[in-house]
Design a protein around this nucleic acid. Structure first.
Lengths: 347, 347
DNA sequence: CAAATCTTCTGTATCGTTACAGATTTGTAT
DNA sequence: ATACAAATCTGTAACGATACAGAAGATTTG
């Protein structure tokens, strides 16, 4: 039972330093550094009594593995990289997203590193950086394109990642997405139910995948509910609110404008409302609108607008869970989820 | 001139691996690893010809120092930790803040790690974590309290940090802050100019430093412009919008309410507007309001509200610059900045 | 011309961790 | 007894970078 506390050997030197390391525990328990390491990761060749003893000491002195040591030796960074477009900032998606991700990572050893990029042209840069420097174990990207070079690159390198948004390359990869098709379809339905027939869509920029979805849902609605789609292509959700407002004002001034609007974002809706009201239209009377609603802004300040909520925080949680699962080797096809529009208070 | 390319020595082994390291460069140049390391950091005992040669090769093969190696050896993490309260999420401050910080860090080797905490009670946890594990070289915290234990702790340990918001402990530390005193004072002035005399303030939670500032500015305005402050203490900016609305509705229902409101946040203003309109008041007629305005929401949907902008992105930039400077040893007293309300379009 | 000095370069040890190849003890089979 | 296997434990080397203490050759000094 009582193994001699080996001494006199080339035993580990006293720890001395500040923060406890494996050496500290080895010294305190009289075990070898290797044994301590293996005990802490529950290796099969360590007696359960020793494991217990090591764990106890480790807990007592508040041992936490040195990340640099682990990373240098194993290559495991314990980092998830969230790659953000600065455009997203405008839409205010970042905050709840980060919160959702953090909620999941909090229970793990993972840290969240945020890496933004400027223009869509540079979207590949941060991904390359992570791949080349091994800066993270997994990556979360958003604003996917149908043929997304980032996805192609990471799949080719077999690097764990998840996308916020789908792609159309015939490649199976983890994603979480909001069902923008359904959103737009339901939006058209609501407008049609109010007798609106001449509809416009404030849509995403055309190179993003969710443009296709939103557009498809919109057009399916148009067909199913016998409405007409008017063009509104001069601006999209990536334009500044001032530009959106400007374009919308021009449209209303041209006369013969829409009697129903679907807005792909809450802030976009604000610009549209400003424009239509500047043009003398009255919401709920001359024209109706359906929009995504990030907060309660529209619901409270323009209750005439019908709103649906997209739960970005949930998206963050799903995305984080998916990368982690991917890192652990779960197959990509099990890591694809959709979320659906949440109806907010009806008028 | 031509130093013999030393060979036959215990020269470095071929690099072989994927990513180039110092060893790779050493092998390619025929120099020692140490020499390469010192050449790259422009040490004085390396000839400028060698430096040039090393730099050239390093650039050619795209050498980037291994972060884990540096971190393990030197303790330098090249990480800035942004410690966030989940409460901030609600106010949507995170996004532009992260963007601002990233803008500054992009030009450096630093990565940004986001570490959120749940309740105000746990605010100390992430700070302790960073201090104990050495997870970062510098920390950015916000939501400071007059006697902030995080500040005390980090100063005691002489750990580089900057706060978003000031403290009142007689400790000199780097900060960036928005002048909420001025904001509230100017807000009262605007209301007084419109003849409003019975004012309420939707204020921050009382334990935060900027409560004191906003309150002070408000009350100074009250005195200077001969108005009256009505109590509105049941809720603050940390409460949910629903709660704020509820409390405001109760206030209006009680009769004899305010004829002017100062709202410390844009989203809070929305709740207040919803409440006052539900109570039959009309903005700009029965009552006036001044608010911070994060976007264009208020300006476009309730142009009657007078707004001022707080540039959070700028705050992010200033905070990042300050931690970096502090890490480089600049004295704290040189790293204290204030930003001022930006008037948005007048009615 | 030997000694001292300067210039430039390099090997060794180390940070904390883990993979790997033993080592030691104990128990089992022959 | 002797060999063999099982159960536990441990030293060494390595990941990539840098601090430190030389080392080798060239140059100056008296």
């Amino acid at each position: 039972m009582d193994r001699k506390t080996s001494d006199g050997q080339a035993g580990p030197l006293p720890p001395s330093g500040e923060r406890p390391t494996l050496k500290t525990i080895a010294f305190m328990t009289g075990l070898g550094i290797t044994t301590v390491s293996r005990a802490l990761k529950d290796a099969p060749d360590i007696s359960s009594e020793t494991k217990e003893r090591v764990r106890l000491v480790a807990r007592q002195i508040g041992y936490q593995p040195n990340r640099a040591g682990v990373r240098l030796r194993t290559g495991k960074t314990n980092v998830i990289s969230l790659i953000l477009s600065l455009e997203e900032e405008i839409m205010g998606l970042t905050s709840p997203m980060v919160v959702g991700i953090s909620e999941v990572l909090a229970a793990t050893q993972y840290h969240l590193v945020v890496t933004p990029y400027r223009a869509q042209d540079n979207a590949l840069d941060p991904v390359r950086y992570v791949l080349e420097t091994g800066a993270a174990d997994g990556v979360i990207i958003s604003r996917t394109e149908p043929k997304d070079p980032r996805v192609a690159l990471m799949m080719e390198r077999n690097f764990p990642f998840v996308t916020h948004g789908r792609t159309e390359m015939g490649l199976v990869h983890p994603y979480h997405d909001f069902d923008n098709e359904r959103f737009a379809y339901e939006a058209v339905r609501k407008l049609a139910e109010r007798g609106r027939k001449r509809l416009v869509l404030l849509q995403p920029p055309p190179y993003l995948t969710f443009y296709l979805h939103m557009r498809a849902g919109f057009e399916r609605g148009i067909r199913d509910f016998g409405a007409t789609a008017l063009p509104f292509n001069t601006v999209n959700l990536d334009n500044s609110l001032a530009d959106i407002r400007g374009a919308a004002e021009a449209m209303f001034a041209a006369g013969d404008g829409p009697d129903g609007i679907v807005s792909g974002s809450g802030s976009g809706a604000v610009a549209l409302i400003a424009a239509l009201e500047a043009g003398g239209r009255r919401l709920g009377q001359d024209i109706d609108m359906v929009s995504k609603e990030p907060h309660m802004f529209l619901q409270w300040l323009r209750p005439e607008v019908m709103t649906m909520r997209e739960d970005i925080r949930l998206a963050g949680r799903e995305l984080a869970k998916a990368v982690l699962a991917r890192i652990e080797g779960r197959p990509a096809e099990e890591l694809q989820t959709l979320s659906y529009p949440i109806p907010t208070g009806e008028v």
